[in-house]
Structures are given as C-alpha cells and as structure tokens.
Amino acid sequence: MKKKFFRLSILAAFITGFSACTDVIDLDVPEGTSYPVLDAWITNEPGTQYIRFTKSVSYTSTGATPIISDATITLYDETTGDVYPFVFADSVYKCDPANGQIGQLNHTYRLRVEYASNIYEATDTIKPVATIDKIDYKYKEKGDDGVSKEGYYVRFYATDMAGQTDYTWIRSYRNNMEKANILEDNYVIDGGFSEGLSDGQEFPQFVGESVNDDEHPYLKGDLAIVKLRSLSYPSYFWVTSVQTQMQSGGLFATVLANVGTNLKNVTDGGSKSKILGWFGTSAVSSATITTN
C-alpha cells in the first residue's frame, strides 16, 4: 500500500515535468561495528528448517557475508516440550524433523542461541493463516488498468478469517525462491489496512494483485510463487519496520531508524553483548501458477 502511494507521488513529479530523478551515488560512510545477525523464521511447512547466523557488514560491500559457524542453536516447542537442535552444515543451521513438520499451529516456540559465552533467547507463536483459494493471471497491455509495462499479472484470492485480528505477510517469487527472485513483500491486517476494518472480508483485489512487480511483470512461462505467512503482532511490527527501512525513498520517506530485535541476552550474571535479527514463526499458505 505504501508502495502504491509512493508511486503516486513519483508520478506527480514526472507528470508535471519536474523531472524527479534518482541517481546511484558513492557515499563515504565509515564502516560500522559488526554485529551478529540471526535470521530465524520457523514455519509449519514440512521438511527441513533453516537458520542463518551471519555478521553485519558495510552496507554496500560486495564480498560474501561472514558466516558464524560456532553457535549452538536449539528450538523448543513450549507447547509440547519437544526439542529441536539445529546443526551447522553448508553455511546454515539445519534441522530435519524425522517425520512431517516442525511448526504446529498455535504452538509457542522458544529459540536459544549460545554464542561467544552468551545466551540469547526469543519466543514467537504460530498463528493461523488464511488459505489461498485460487490463483490466476491476466495478460495486460501497457495502459490497461493503469499498468506501465505489458506482461502477465497474477492475482491470488483469499478470505480473511473472521474473529481475531490476522496479520499476514504476502511474499511473491518468480520461478524459484532464491534471493534474486523475490518480487514483492506486502503486509495486511485482516486482509486490508487497519485493525477492525475488514475482518472476515475477502482480500481486496489490489491486495490480491500486490504480488506483481509492476516494473517487471511476469513473462510468458514464468512460475509465480505466492506465500502467505501468518504473523504474531510483534513479528508483524518488526517486519513492517523492516519494510519501512527498505523502502525509504520518495517524497514521503521516513527517516532511517534502526530495526530492533527480539533476541534477549539471558546470560547468567548479565551481559551487554547483543545480537541483531529476529526470531519469527508462521503458518504458511502457498500457491503457484505458470503463465502461458
């Protein structure tokens, strides 16, 4: 939604011939302190779950990110008491449940990270997620429905679950789930904008269509992948904070502010060492479609 607004403002600038423009520039920013960064998102999808533990590096640096391999990471299912140790192999920490899936609906999880003589912990709960009922696409010429590029525009259909407030993270990919192929991240509350406004309603059309990268629409033969991830409120708050930091361009840009972390240092005797990142959990609903 923010993005849509952002585009409106840029359009204003273009249309009036103000020639608003963006340039990539070189900035001389001294290298900052490097902190450990935990990338842990556990879902109810079947199979192996992965956790990355890296070090922060200079923003524009091009080299590979340093990986931390000597941490001990354990996931606790607080609801059942099950324990899942994550083992480091091939640059990530992995856990392959013997059968089925690690994440269970409505269970609370605690993640424990032992690293450099400190212990960090965080918890999150897997909330239910709306089901994608249908996914389809439509070929649009430039100008149809106000699009600026011709191509295949995908839309998914889902209906918000009535009752509680549901926070959902909508992510789309092209062809595979590599970093380079992530298209869009959008966040909705009860499928819409705001608490208590659209409870139980069908996800609006513009949300269903928010999976498209309007600058690079799907091409013939592309596989569109759409995933809805349920979010607890703290996780919603965090990922939308991240979103704000990642899309800080435009006339209505907010100022850069650091995103927080839910990983608390629980080392006996107290310690001020910190790690960044987030431990989140989700139920996932996904759908794919190939355009042709």
């Binding site: 920013v29 900052g32 922060s56 200079s58 923003y59």
Partner: peptide, 26 residues
C-alpha cells in the same frame, strides 16, 4: 540525515542499519 553503515541479511533482505544507533549524524 542518518546513513546506513551496515546491512543485516535477513530472509533475502539487506536491511540498512546504523551501528552507532545515532540519528542525523551525517
């Protein structure tokens, strides 16, 4: 303004971050 002096890699994102935690130093 506040510039990012680092990035955090997370779920395919590179999150801009200022490790000094200070605002408007640039």
């Amino acid at each position: 303004t506040t510039y990012a002096d680092s990035r955090l890699e997370y779920q395919g994102w590179d999150i801009p971050y200022n490790s000094t935690d200070k605002r408007n130093t640039y």
